[in-house]
């Protein structure tokens, strides 16, 4: 799915001058999406996340996450209930092993970047996942997305893999990982069961978890480059 990358943003036909930064006072509220029913915020979430994507997710991708893990989705709203930022996650056993939290999408409105909104959203999601007994949390983000890397690395995430040409636009990602409990590397995991016909891997093209994940969803909809260096710094 696509380019949450700067390339996508600049290649795309939608590229225009970025809106000016919002400079006034802001009274930001952070609320959970919740699990009641489909929220009236869904269209705004979709719009915010798909803004920089060359190929959008279908509504079902959002529903897939929000229906099952609405409590792990957080939104940043201003006083008029305008959506400024959102984080979408899931939490389930990874290869029948550790309980893995996964940050699938994170986006903030460009005019409001640099106000630590993304940082706050990540914190809320991480705390909630800890509360729900996650063993570890993983995510991918583009190697050139320094602000995003800062946010996670300032929470304790480490880069564990470099994923060559991970996104559709050809850009490369880091996998980041945070352990929340001791002994996770010793937990047994089992290789995923692949449907034999999934994807173009005839021949000997190596199919592994990453490829399947990628074919399933390129959920690296990380869009936080607007967060400034210093925001994450100290």
């Amino acid at each position: 799915m696509s380019g949450n990358s700067k390339h996508a943003a600049t290649d795309g036909p939608t590229e225009t001058e970025p809106p000016p930064k919002f400079t006034g006072e802001l009274n930001i509220r952070y609320i959970s999406y919740g699990s009641e029913k489909e929220s009236p915020y869904l269209p705004a979430i979709r719009q915010l996340i798909s803004k920089d994507l060359s190929e959008p997710y279908s509504i079902y991708v959002y529903r897939y996450f929000l229906y099952q893990w609405g409590d792990l989705c957080f939104m940043a709203l201003d006083a008029h209930n305008n959506l400024l930022g959102v984080i979408v996650c899931k939490l389930e056993p990874h290869r029948h092993g550790p309980m893995r939290g996964y940050i699938a999408m994170l986006a903030t409105r460009s005019e409001y970047r640099g106000r630590r909104i993304a940082t706050m959203l990540v914190r809320l999601a991480v705390d909630k996942m800890i509360e729900e007994d996650a063993d570890e949390i993983a995510l991918e983000t583009e190697v050139t997305n320094i602000p995003s890397l800062r946010i996670y690395e300032n929470l304790g995430f480490l880069r564990t893999k470099r994923l060559h040409r991970y996104y559709l636009n050809g850009s490369t990602a880091f996998r980041l990982l945070l352990y929340l409990k001791p002994g996770i590397p010793y937990k047994p995991t089992f290789p995923p069961e692949f449907p034999a016909e999934s994807g173009g891997g005839q021949g000997q093209g190596w199919m592994d978890e990453v490829l399947v994940e990628r074919q399933v969803v390129r959920t690296g909809v990380e869009d936080v480059y607007g967060e400034r260096f210093d925001v994450a710094g100290r």
């Binding site: 994923l163 060559h164 040409r165 991970y166 994807g199 173009g200 891997g201 005839q202 021949g203 000997q204 093209g205 190596w206 199919m207 490829l211 990628r214 074919q215």
Partner: peptide, 9 residues
């Protein structure tokens, strides 16, 4: 396809 490579990447 007769050798090892990683599809897509």
């Amino acid at each position: 396809q007769s050798q090892n490579f990683y599809e897509e990447e």
